[in-house]
Simulated assay, not measured.
Amino acid sequence: MEYRSLPSSNDKISTIGIGAGNLHESTPQEIVNIIDYGMENGINLIDAVMPDSRAAEPIAQALKGRRDEMNMQMHLGAVYHKGTYSRTRDLSKVKRGFEQELKKYGTDYADIGILHCVDEVGDFEKIMSDGIFDYARKLKREGTIRYLGFSSHSPDICRLFLDTGEIDIFMFSLNAAYDFEPAEGKLVLSHKRMELYRECEKDGVGITVMKPYDGGKLLNAKTSPLNAEMSINQCIQYALDRPAVLSCLAGVRSRTDLEEALNYFSASGEQRNYSFIGNLPHKNMQDTCIYCNHCQPCPSGIDIGSVNKYLDLAKAGDELAKDHYMKLSKNANDCTECGVCEENCPFHVNVRSRMKEARNYFENKSK
């Protein structure tokens, strides 16, 4: 195992962590065994957000008597009414939900307290004005959370949080499909995203990575937004090569998934090499959304990249994606089919068709 230090302390984080979102696909005893196996191999970070709370008790069981050996990333605003995930911005529910999370895991602190899934300016402003950010700061002052952070898919929202000067770490969706954008017939790293990573490194703010495999889509050329397959080793290396990144949270359904992620440490440089991405031509990516948002601005105010991202993640099995889509201030239901987005899209994506697909998909999911 390799470790990286949190910029604001000497605490070391394993460069591969466990994303618990799909652990419920294993039995309780298998979950205990997965956590045991990860810790035996040096993993000391787990992100505890999940679509339901079935995996929580076996995680707590695995950590009993050695809680201090695992950094727990716990979310303020992720609540589990009757065991099912939802996101809230009601301060009283945020407080009650976080207290229940601590009790659930048999602990009195979270190593990393994450303001959960903030992707829109209005949502950020609500957190700042309705007492949620103040509550998070209070928890940090009291030592109930050791490091203050947030999770987001939006570079713009990340910058708003960073401007507060009070963020230690954050969880960000990061992979090659999200980071690259079109330029002169090739794909190049997004300037906006790279500047964010560099700014974090300069300011001493760490990043933990969610969606390193893009929900598994990058692992298959047929589903990859790049129209080219990346291996798990390449995805992990790509994420760890970004400035300020501390750890790559691998989504784990089974011990096999964790073993495949940990194989990264025995992989050769050639097996980790992802340089082929820079030579991928646009022509191989026609009608493929890579969420670059070059289609903006939308006259209806829809974040088209987020709608497409949540649709793809939901279809790939991400059980949180539907809730995140439904919490968008504007979604596919607001599309007027004006076609302005398609005129701007460098990959000639049929955006109107994608909006119809998203509308139908999530409406059917709601029934």
Rank of each mutant, 00 (worst) to 15 (best):
R193V: 07
D179E: 13
D203I: 00
I169K: 04
I207F: 04
L189T: 08
S151V: 06
Y135W: 13
D123Q: 13
H191V: 11
I127E: 11
K186T: 12
L174A: 06
V121C: 00
L160N: 08
S154W: 05
P155Q: 09
H153G: 04
E201S: 07
G206W: 01
G165I: 07
S151F: 07
H153V: 08
S152W: 02
R193P: 04
E199C: 06
I157T: 04
Y147K: 07
D119A: 03
M194L: 14
L148F: 04
L115N: 13
L189D: 02
T208W: 03
E199M: 10
S152H: 02
G143R: 01
I127P: 05
T164Y: 12
Y213I: 01
C117G: 07
E142L: 14
E184H: 12
D203H: 10
D123S: 12
Y213K: 00
A183Y: 11
E181I: 12
E184L: 13
F172Y: 15
M128C: 12
L174V: 03
S152N: 04
S129F: 00
L115T: 03
E142N: 14
R198Q: 15
K186Y: 11
L189S: 08
K211I: 02
Y178R: 02
F170C: 05
H116D: 14
L196C: 04
G113V: 08
Y213N: 06
G113K: 02
R193K: 15
I145E: 02
H116K: 00
Y147R: 03
S151W: 07
D179T: 10
H191F: 10
F133T: 05
S190H: 05
F133W: 14
H191I: 07
D156R: 10
S152L: 05
I132T: 14
D156K: 10
G131M: 03
K202P: 00
I167Q: 09
F172E: 07
F170W: 06
R137P: 00
E142V: 11
S151C: 09
I167H: 07
L187G: 10
L189R: 11
L115Q: 11
P212R: 00
I112P: 01
H191N: 12
